[in-house]
């Protein structure tokens, strides 16, 4: 069994292009689980439009105020750093989307009027296409608890598949670290622009905090452009694959197609990429 994460410093670099195609060709070599951990905007499912087999809700603690005991003195409001519990003259309101489940109000309420309740923070969906199982974490709109949903999504199915691929959220904050921290290999997707380079550098700084093997995939590469190459040489990072800028690829992708299923030469490139990752892991 191996675990590969696909990550990028910013949106729009082609992270989902890499993860969906890699999963698609890997499914010919063994069972594959593709985890969509980009929980705020999961979109891997757009490329595998099969019916969802099952969905389940993920929950988290929120406070419940017992109106008969509460004296509306507002200690809870004073201690809540997130303004998630608001005490008015005759009532106290809880805002689940703002609550970080820190238990502060429960601990500090002088009348013990607050008890543990639960709220849904999102859903985990599963669907199948032949040897490929897609597991999607979907955060509710306006919900901030991405890291807990990501960790639930990662552990929501027994990891019996031979290859597990994880589409990580973009950026460099907590959700990304949660998604990639226990991987066998991390693919960092970037593009050869100053934007791509800047975000790659932030990503490298983030990954260096967790000490996992990683390499770079240059998407939309162009002959004669060595922006990413120079950076990687300087920092001793391997470029594990390149995908050229091509309007036909962009068009097929924009129409929701798996590019490897349409263009055999792209398929070969992904097979080589997977083979290289296997070699790097031994």
């Amino acid at each position: 069994m191996m675990k590969i994460a696909v990550a990028s410093g910013k949106g729009g670099t082609g992270k989902t292009f890499i993860s969906t195609n890699l999963a698609y060709i890997a499914a010919d070599q063994g069972s594959v689980h593709l985890f969509d951990l980009d929980v705020e905007e999961p979109n891997a499912h757009l490329f595998f439009p099969e019916r969802v087999r099952d969905s389940r809700a993920v929950r988290r603690m929120i406070p419940i105020v017992n109106a008969e005991i509460c004296d509306h003195k507002g200690i809870c409001t004073q201690v809540c750093e997130y303004h998630a519990i608001i005490s008015l003259a005759t009532t106290t309101m809880v805002f689940p989307e703002l609550c970080h489940s820190c238990y502060g109000c429960l601990e500090l309420c002088p009348t013990r009027a607050i008890s543990e309740g639960f709220k849904e923070i999102g859903k985990i969906h599963r669907s199948d296409t032949g040897g490929l199982h897609l597991i999607t974490g979907e955060l509710k709109v306006g919900e901030s608890a991405a890291p807990s949903l990501i960790s639930e999504t990662k552990t929501s199915v027994p990891q019996e598949a031979q290859i597990n691929i994880y589409d990580a959220p973009p950026g460099t904050s907590c959700p990304v670290i949660e998604a990639v921290k226990d991987m066998d290999y991390i693919i960092l997707v970037t593009e050869p622009t100053p934007f791509g380079l800047h975000d790659l550098d932030l990503m490298v700084q983030t990954i260096n905090q967790i000490d996992r093997p990683y390499g770079v995939v240059v998407n939309k590469s162009q002959a004669g452009n060595n922006l990413i190459e120079s950076y990687c040489t300087e920092h001793g990072i391997e470029i594990i694959a390149r995908f050229a800028q091509d309007i036909n690829i962009a068009r097929a992708y924009a129409q929701g197609k798996i590019v490897s299923a349409v263009f055999p030469e792209i398929r070969t490139r992904f097979e080589t990429l997977l083979q290289r990752i296997r070699e790097r892991m031994i």
Partner: peptide, 13 residues
């Protein structure tokens, strides 16, 4: 420091 969410519960207790 990466995991601390600044909720202040530890400080109160």
């Amino acid at each position: 420091e990466i995991s601390c969410e600044g909720c202040a519960v530890c400080s109160y207790l």
